[in-house]
Amino acid sequence: MDKNNIRMKCEKVNFYYGRKRALDDINLDIYKNSVTAIIGPSGCGKSTLIRLYNRMNDLIPRTRLEGKIFLDDKNIYDIGSDVVEIRRKVGMVFQKPNPFPKTIFENISYGLEVNGEKDKTFINDRVISSLKKAALWCEVKDRLHDSALQLSGGQQQRLCIARCLAVEPEVILFDEPCASLDPISTQKIEELILELKKTYTIIIVTHNMQQAARVSDFTAFLYIGKLVEFGTTEKLFTVPKEKLTEEYLTGKFG
């Protein structure tokens, strides 16, 4: 855990829905070109936490954040920081596949267009390379101009990943990306994540411990809004320091 390698970082983060505190004094480092998994029982604040990294919770009324979250050396919650720019750098794949009701091509070119890209050939190439990276190209290359809503759930989710890759983010957030998918699609997405970590920094929320063990380098265990334990996945799963972590991993609660 080299301190020079930190990409994102939470400092004393508290988060409130109205008066209810959902996150309690979280300090968490995210390392470059690694996969960090956030695990914990439902309602522990996993999704709330991951949505803070690209300021997605700004959309929910009556919420409040205390503390700082850094992307490299900049606090993304600083007054005057550009939320649109942050979201371009920190991409997100959601729990349920959410392609736009547009064609497959338009879904991917969308991110480029809104970021001001006008060059048609560039867009075209980027769409193709993103689809290839997301391992979807072979399945859709003949129907790029069909509606994205016709794809299967697993394909839709890979399309959402391709859409996210097209704008070349630096960090990618996965919020339970396999929650609504079948085992085969899940496997494909996990393989994809392992491939992507070579170039990107990845944070993934999952309720599936095996998935965390399979794909992640680091794991953070969250329980009722508190960060109970953080460490390399190998250590956390084999020799957890906290009793609570051990109980969760062995299925005593969940």
Binding site: L59, V84, N98, F100, E113
Partner: peptide
């Protein structure tokens, strides 16, 4: 709401999201 979130998460501005995703839908 997921359409809006998807668009914002790609770095679209609020107005781009409305114009290109919300209104057409």
């Amino acid at each position: 709401q997921s359409y809006r979130e998807a668009s914002l998460a790609l770095g679209a501005t609020h107005w781009q999201t409305i114009k290109k995703v919300v209104l057409p839908t």
